[in-house]
Each structure stands twice: as C-alpha cells, then as structure tokens.
Design a protein around this nucleic acid. Sequence first.
DNA 1: GCCGTTTTCGGCCCGACTGTTTTCAGTCG
Length: 576
Amino acid sequence: MSVRNTEIQAIFNQVADLIEIKGENPFRIRAYREAARIIGGMSEQMAKLVQERQDLTQYRGIGKDLAEKIREIVETGGLNFLDELKADLPQSLLEILAIPELGPKKVAALYHKLGVTTVEELKTAAENGKIAQLDGFGSKSQEKILKSLDQFKKKSAKRMLLAEAEPVAAALEAYMKAQEGIKQASIAGSFRRGKETVGDLDLLATCRRGYENQLMKAFVAFEDVARVDAQGRSKSSVHLRSGLQVDLRIVPQLSYGAALHYFTGSKAHNVAVRKLAMEKGLKINEYGVYQDDKRIAGETEPAVYDAAGLCYIEPELRENMGEIESARVGALPELIKISDIRGDLHAHTRRTDGTGSLEKMAEAAGKYGYEYLAITEHSQKVAVAGGLNEKQVREHLADIDRVNEKINGIRLLKGMEVDIRSDGSLDLADSVLKELDLTVCSVHYHQGLASDKQTERVIRAMDNPWFKILGHPSGRLINRREPMAIDLEAIIEAAGQRGVIIELNAQPDRLDLAHNYCKTAVERGVKLAISTDAHSPGNLKLMRNGVIEARRGWVRCADVINTLGLKTLLQALNRD
DNA sequence: GCCGTTTTCGGCCCGACTGTTTTCAGTCG
C-alpha cells in the first residue's frame, strides 16, 4: 500500500514528457497523459487494486500495457521504461519543458543542436546569442526565452488558491463590464469549475459590432497588468502583477454558449463531448455546433449539450470522471447549493485560537440566516492553540448556556475539536464528551505515521461512541503540505459502519475531504458536514468554498447534515 | 497506447497567435 496514485500519475506524466521530446506518436503520448489524469482523480488506490488482483483495464484509459506498467510501479516502486528513457535523455530536460514558449520540439532542437540539458545552460546559450542562430528560432524567441527564464526563477509556477483568485477575477470582470460596447463578460476555465487552485483566468466577452479592438486595448491597459504576452483581434493574453495569467477572448454573440462551454473545459470533458457529437455527425468548436457547416446551436450552453444528446452538466462536474455517462441517461445528481446550508459545525473563539467572542460569532452566523453554530474549541493536547482541559471545557459549556439565553434566532451548539492521540484514544474523557452536543475529532500530531498505523489510529478513535465528526481527514494544506499517508477509502468504509460523519473543511487551503473522496463517501452513503473551521466571525463566509468543493464531489443536499434543521440535526448526531 | 452498435485496424478535438518557414510549424489552451 505504499505507492500512491499521485506517484503513478507523476511517473506517467514524466514518461509522456520524455517521449514527447523524443518525437513519439502523439496519441501514445496522449494515452499516458490521459491515464495519469484518470489515476490522479481516482479515490481507489491503484496499489490496493493491484494487491487484490483486480482487472485494471476496467478503468477507461487503461489498457493491457498500462495496467502492466501500473503493476510494475506498485510492486517495484519504479518503472523500467522510465529509467530507459532517462538513460536516453537527460531528466533535466523536463525542467526546460516546463518553461513557457518551449515545447517538446524546441526542447529537442536545443538539446540536439546546442547540447542544452539544463536551465542554466539554456540561459548561457540565450545570453551568448546562440539560440537566435538556430533554425526555427530567431532573435525574438531568444528574447522571450530570457524573459521566461526570469519569471521561471521567481515563482515555481505554483497555482493560486481559488479563494485568492476570486477578488482578482471579480475586479477584472467588473472593469471589463464597465467598458463601452461590452455586452457580456464572464470568467470561464478552472475558475468556473471551482477547482481548488487556478493556473490562469479565462475571461470571455461579447460586444457590440466594431468594439473588439477598443476592448482589447482596454483589457491590456487594466491597471494590474504587468506584461502583455499576446494581443490579437479575438484573443489577448496578459500577466498580472500577482503572476496570474489572464486570457481574454471576444466571441460573437451567437457563439457565446459554445465558447463558454469550450473555455470552461475541462479539456478532457470537452474532448469527450466533441466525440459524442462526432458520432452524431456534428462538429463542435468554440463557435457553435455544426451540421454540414450549418450552425445548429451555440448561443447558450444548454443548447450545446442538448445537441450532443446530453442534459446540462454543471461546471463543477466537468472533469470527464463519469458525468457524461450520467448525463446521457439523465442520472446526474442535483448538487447542493449554498442556500441549502442551515448552520456551521466547526468554529473557534478567542477562548482558544480564534479571534471572536461567542456573541460575535453568533451574530455573524445570524447574518447568514443560520439556525445553529457549533463552537468547537481545541482540546488540551493542542497546547499551541490554548487547548482546553476538562475544567476549562466545563466553563466553556457554561458560557455557551449563558449566551444561548441571551440570543434569539440561533442556537450555539456545545462542541469541542478533540485531538485524536497517536494511540487512537481521544484527548478528553468520555465523562466530558457526553455533555457535548457534538465532537469534531481531528489528527493534529504525528501526521507522519505509516499509512496502516495512521488508518488504524483513526479507526480506533472512531470506535469511541462520542466520536461524531472526523475533522480535516487528510490533513492536507494545499500548496504547503501533502495529505497524510492514510487509507481514506478504509476510513470512509469504517465511518459508514459506525455512523460517523466526515467533515469537508472549507478553509480554502484545506478543502479536506477532497472532492474525489466526497464522491466515494456519497456512493457509500456516508454523511458529510461542510464546516468552515472559522477562527473569526468573518471566516464563516468560507462556507461557499466548501460547498463548491462538495459540488465537485457530486454531493447533494441530502448528503450533508448541516442542511438539516436544528431538531433533525441533533437526532442525526446520535450514533445508533 | 487506447478503443470498438464501423471491434483487432485505423482512427484518435479544434482553433488562435506568434515568429520567421514566403505557406507553416510550434505552442498553448
């Protein structure tokens, strides 16, 4: 169980990169990338499937050959084929390939003709004017490479958190909408799909006839633009000061739906929809759906789906991870909405590491129309956050009683975020836990245990009947910390058997339980709690981010316990 | 390398922008 899906994914992507530099059959390259994508998005661990001798070719995109290679990776931790490729081509070429402007053909040319194998050698060659002399390159490409190298050093191309991109996107959208002649403007791309992180923003617009050039000019003149990468009649591309790349496309009104679909992606989703359309003798591009060069749809997205024989698919589902098959038979779930949420089940106050008082937290929750807010302070073991011992817990509970008597319209629930100790015991005695309305139990320390030990630890903790909600199950911090080694499949299974609820922590850098596991939980009938883990009154607004992640995980209203009214919620929290 | 109500071969999504290639290849999304 040691090799993870993400490692298999990385190996296949490396193979794809290397054989692309070698100039192999493009479809072979695509097959590796597609398999990498599928494996990366799966919640089942390949290592486990291999162990159970399951037939891996049952998964789309994995045939006989790749199934065999997966088995080799799981059993040996490596891949002979990749080692051979690396012996043939320097691995450092992969770094060069990551530089914008440089694709496989150019990397291969630089390597074969100039002997460039590292980023440093590339820089030297560019500075000495060697690159401009190469066939297929010129002085402009040499300049661009130097510029890209500069950028490349500054930021190692980290994707921005969705929540960080939101204000940028909103400002840009508002700016464009204020321009003369504009009709519509919206952000498409992974931003619209609600991905945890975004690499760039895709802005789509329609305008009155004749305003295209003026709009492009206004776009590249946006105050936050640091440099202009390309500027054409229908497409322009810029980098903002934050490092975020933004593309603007101006499309005809009649193509707006088709373009929105096209630029929302994902690429894999689009390819699959186009393939379906092809089977019906139709052609789909960003301008519309065509039958024998005659446009039959394109102004709206639903019409594009309809033409392909599909019902409308929400952007969050567009990953080609089963949504198309479901849409064909009209079996898509009705996804949860932010308005379904009736309370928040994980929040801290200044009694531990939050900043607000009980009253302020209740007041803020009231603004969202919530019926309840659980105050879940840290337990004693989490000393850095001022965790509470048994005596302090009792004071905390008495405080909540006092505040509940004063406030109207919302009920503060008595909770604790109880640390799961490394032996699987809980950080507070049952005699205290039974006085609470609920517990959120989380791992904070010893996140580095081996997978089987970590899994065992959490399952043992769940055996305690006062364990209600498993908090931030993987411990991941997006862009900062990898998820713990833990068998979340087994955890979900165990939660189902014990009536334990799993949290989807809505902090923008957590979003934990991740969407692919949310989907697994829903399939197994395990209930989720979408919680903000708010450390201030303002943090309660993060619920939105949690709901978006849940939607990406095919979660419906009925799968989430904090869509219940207070009375039914309290019943649902009773395990048995 | 995958896939199949055209099933073991022959397909595999499509277009914009850039630079330098005077007619298009490479890159990107």
